[in-house]
């Protein structure tokens, strides 16, 4: 399970709003190689690795 703390892993603030750049930044959040992809990929790999220790499939 996961616990959450309020502090960000690293906190930085922009000096001024920039909604056009916010749109660009979406790429490394929800894009093909964004953080959501690696987050989901690694956590699902954990699930399979745990399961594989009990039942070994062919390769």
């Amino acid at each position: 399970m996961f616990f959450h703390i309020k502090e960000l892993q690293y906190n930085a603030k922009p000096t001024k709003p920039d909604p056009v750049y916010a749109k660009k930044l979406q790429e490394i959040l929800g894009g093909q190689f964004g953080e959501i992809s690696v987050m989901m990929q690694y956590l699902f790999m954990v699930g399979i690795a745990v399961q594989k220790t009990n039942t070994e499939i062919c390769c």
Binding site: F2, L8, Q9, Y10, N11, A12, K13, P14, K16, P17, D18, P19, Y21, A22, L25, Q26, I28, L29, G34, E35, I36, V38, M39, Y42, L43, M45, V46, A49
Partner: peptide, 29 residues
């Protein structure tokens, strides 16, 4: 290690979502 990095990536999702919200907060005049 998979769990270490996987958990860290949750934190990165949080960081980016926060940064995007900050960039959108207060449109340019």
């Amino acid at each position: 290690m998979l769990l270490d990095i996987g958990t860290e990536e949750i934190a990165h999702v949080e960081m980016l979502a926060t940064m995007i919200a900050q960039l959108l907060d207060g449109a340019p005049a």
